[in-house]
Design a protein around this nucleic acid. Structure first.
Length: 273
DNA sequence: ATGCCGTGGAAACCACGA
């Protein structure tokens, strides 16, 4: 099963790019962020025509997240990140897809820092950790994916020294992300490519993509049940070179089938020794 | 060092992004 995440930066303005990428890469599951469209303006007809069922949480002008399933329909489990009824941003949606829990998130940017937007980011990360703690050790496979707006390490930024004061790279942000991962999550892309330069975002200006001046901020975190099934993954960076494209590129992983023996044992409640 | 570009929405500029 191929699972992808893509910050589209406007799902309607980006529709031709999105449809072309769906056709060419044919992911089974897609998590979208930054729809920038109200609930009723999501381009469901075009998405369905491309062969995908969808659930989404829209918002006028900003944010917005969606989960797409090729030849199927996601079963919605959660809409909005729990823990703060006053948080009205559309940044989180969760669904079951063929036995895998897909958690699609758009973590707040947090700039300028310090300030109220940075406080909101850190508070949002605390709520994410509270929610994720209940998922990481689950027998059920879980993936947390999306635009985390977190540069995890200096290796994940072009010229990291320029980002030390930025909300994506400040010590508080990195420490909070480290705490999340330390619950037991596997950073899938970094695990697959421990020593490579991997970017998922490039600024629109100063020819950032042409110079490969990017950031790795779109991530896949796999829980303990799912991590052993990670087969491969990568960044569809060429999409960033298309006309009228997003400033993010799609990122994807391939998950192998659950071993029949393990499935049988799990059903019987046995422990593998 | 910098929103230099881009999107959406309201109003011919502004908020916001990373």
């Amino acid at each position: 099963m191929k699972i992808a995440t893509y910050n589209v930066n406007g799902v309607n303005g980006r529709l031709p790019v999105l449809l072309r990428w769906l056709e060419e890469s044919a992911p089974d599951v897609v998590c979208l962020q930054e729809l920038k469209a109200p609930q009723e303006k999501f381009p469901l007809d075009a998405i369905e025509e491309a062969g995908y069922g969808a659930i989404w949480h829209g918002q006028k002008s900003w944010n917005g997240v969606a989960i797409l399933v090729r030849g199927g329909q996601p079963t919605e489990l959660q809409r909005g990140l729990p823990g703060d009824p006053d948080d009205l941003h559309s940044r989180y949606i969760e669904a079951d897809v063929n036995g895998i829990r897909i958690c699609c998130l758009y973590l707040p940017n947090g700039n300028p820092a310090p300030g109220p937007k940075f406080d909101y980011k850190l508070a949002w990360m605390e709520r994410l950790k509270s929610h994720a703690k209940g998922l990481v050790g689950n027998d059920h496979p879980v993936v947390l994916t999306g635009d985390f707006n977190v540069i995890p390490t200096p290796a994940d930024a072009y010229k990291p020294e320029r980002w030390v004061e930025d909300a994506l790279f400040r010590p508080e942000t990195r420490a909070s992300f480290e705490e999340l991962v330390a619950q037991g999550w596997t950073d899938a892309i970094r695990t697959l490519y421990p020593n490579d330069t991997i970017y998922t975002f490039w600024d629109y200006f100063r020819n950032a993509y042409g110079r490969n001046a990017g950031l790795r901020i779109d991530h896949f975190l796999l829980n303990e049940s799912l991590a052993p099934r990670l087969k491969s993954g990568g960044v569809d960076h060429y999409v960033r070179g298309w006309e009228k494209t997003s400033d993010h590129a799609p990122v994807w992983i391939e998950i192998g089938e659950e071993k029949a023996r393990r499935k049988k044992e799990a059903a019987a409640g046995q422990i593998d020794r």
